[in-house]
Design a protein around this nucleic acid. Structure first.
Length: 453
RNA sequence: GGCGGGUUGGCGGAGAGGUUACGCAGCGGAUUGCAAAUCCGUGAAGACCGGUUCGAUUCCGGUACCCGCCUCCA
């Protein structure tokens, strides 16, 4: 079994081999917990969840260690606390709860570790101390800054040179920086802002250091895969590399870097000003099942920009209803080798979905169910949405009786009228010689059935 | 300005240097009291201009357009 992944570091698709035979370690940048996750936040969750599932399948469930952090110290959180007057811990605890609810709804497995930045402050302070000792960082005006010029490889991941970046910089440079590209490892905290005692005074960490510290503590100085959204490639991941490689020069940090492309909505960048900004919870509340959202995500390869559209959601819902109808009561067999092969080729989930369609057409329902589970689809705990919630048998019997009478009287009007009402309620009406079958379809609304009484 | 990515049939969206992607929609047929669902069949493509090649939508170069990052947004 060969897994091939596109490595952002080398810009090539490479055969994946774990650093430690039979053991795989993966780190993915998680959310800053100050608000509900929006649908863009969910894309890397689904993408790397799919990779997690594949790795578990290939190497064994216990052989894969997956860490995804919660950034719970951040100025956006501080701002939210100041606005609402609520304690920071309340906000971050609540947001983490939401995150779990929403990502669970998308069928994402919980990572092995979900470290909170605030629980690793000591590790960050130790790492910063080491960087200063090694000449890679310096203290200035209460801050500790990373000395970008001390790391020759800086910019390699994102294909930038320090000089080019300075030439094109649009940001105002803090006067205490030795070099405009130097970035903050530690900054002072004024009263009312979270802070910790450190050799450089009361303060808090910069953003990037947490991922370096936590990945080191949980996965070691060298690990296999580091993932995240493409927007993190610079500066966040570039800075992580600089910090980690300078702090642990014997390690290689992440071997494979993976970045998912961004998400758009109806062809446009999602933004609050365009009014097309929404959270996963918004979609769930509007009645889009998490499984439907997941299938929409998986329909586009992770390296390409993905467009969220209601049309795609509609199609995905139809597909899942059909498949769920097919595999109902079917025990899963083994995942089809074609599915394993195609997702092993750089996580080609769109190709895998095509194979699921093939399996459905071929009638291998046990294989369909098992293969879909590789993608986190058609699992039993995700299927409640496709059940009617009400027993349609009484209506089916009434319709059958009306139809029987119509067949004899040749007056089909009453039967047709009832059928039309059922269709209006979102019920799929299937009449055959053997009787009438009623199945809830897209947009099924049990309330509309009451009008039939 | 710097760096990176993309452009496939009506729509969505993959793979592969030569052979049907697939889904949705459409069309034809089977089926049905009529439908729906289902099944079978079917047309339709690779931005533009060059190059490499026996042969490119697939590799290379250029043009146009679109998008992202450079602002502690995944």
């Amino acid at each position: 079994m060969t897994i091939r992944l596109t490595n952002s570091k080398t810009r090539r698709k490479e055969e994946f081999t774990p650093l430690r035979e039979g053991q795989v370690s993966m780190y993915v940048c998680g959310p800053t917990v100050y608000d509900r996750a929006h649908i863009g936040n969910a894309r890397p969750v689904v993408v790397f969840d799919t990779l997690f599932r594949l790795l578990r399948h290939v190497y064994g469930a216990d052989a894969v260690t997956y860490a995804r952090n919660f950034t719970d110290v951040d100025d956006k959180i501080n701002a939210r606390a100041a606005e609402t007057g609520r304690p920071i811990r309340d906000i971050t605890d609540e947001t983490i709860g939401w995150y779990h609810e929403d990502m669970d709804a998308l069928g994402a497995l919980r990572p092995t570790h979900e470290p909170r930045a605030t629980e690793y402050i000591g590790a960050m302070i130790a790492m910063i101390g080491g960087l200063i000792q090694g000449g890679h960082a310096y203290e200035a005006s209460g801050h500790v800054l990373f000395r970008v010029r001390s790391y020759a490889e800086y910019g390699a991941l994102s294909g930038r040179s320090v000089d080019d970046m300075i030439a094109g910089a649009r940001v105002e440079v803090a006067p205490y920086k030795e070099d405009p590209m130097d970035f903050v490892l530690w900054k002072p905290s004024e009263a009312g802002v979270p802070g910790w005692d450190s050799p450089w005074g009361f303060g808090r960490p910069g953003w990037h250091i947490e991922c370096s510290a936590m990945s080191y503590e949980l996965l070691g100085e060298s690990f296999d895969i580091h993932g995240g959204g493409l927007d993190l490639q610079f500066p966040h991941h570039e800075n992580e590399i600089a910090q980690s490689c300078c702090a642990h020069p014997h390690g290689s940090f992440a071997k494979v870097w993976m970045h998912n492309e961004m998400l758009q909505v109806e062809g446009k960048k999602m933004s609050k000003s365009l009014g097309n900004f929404f959270t996963v919870r918004d979609l769930l509340d509007q009645g889009y099942p998490g499984e439907v959202i997941r299938l929409v995500y998986l329909g586009t390869h992770y390296k390409k920009p993905m467009d969220w559209t209601v049309e795609k959601a509609r199609e995905a819902e139809g597909t899942l209803r059909k498949w769920r109808g097919l595999v109902k009561g079917v025990a899963p067999s083994q995942p089809d080798q074609r599915v394993i092969d195609v997702i092993s080729d750089d996580l080609n989930t769109a190709g895998a979905i095509a194979v699921l369609h093939d399996l459905a057409r071929e009638g291998d329902l046990a294989g369909l169910k098992a293969s879909a589970a590789m993608l986190g689809l058609l699992e039993d705990h995700m299927g409640a949405w496709s059940e009617a919630g009400v027993d349609l048998t009484p209506w089916a019997e009434r319709l059958a009786a009306l139809r029987q009478a119509a067949m004899e009287s040749k007056n089909f009007a009453p039967a047709d009228a009832m059928k039309a009402q059922l269709v209006a309620a979102g019920v799929e009406v299937r009449m055959s010689k053997s009787g009438c079958e009623l199945v809830p379809g897209p947009g099924f609304d049990a309330a509309k059935l009451e009008a039939l009484d």
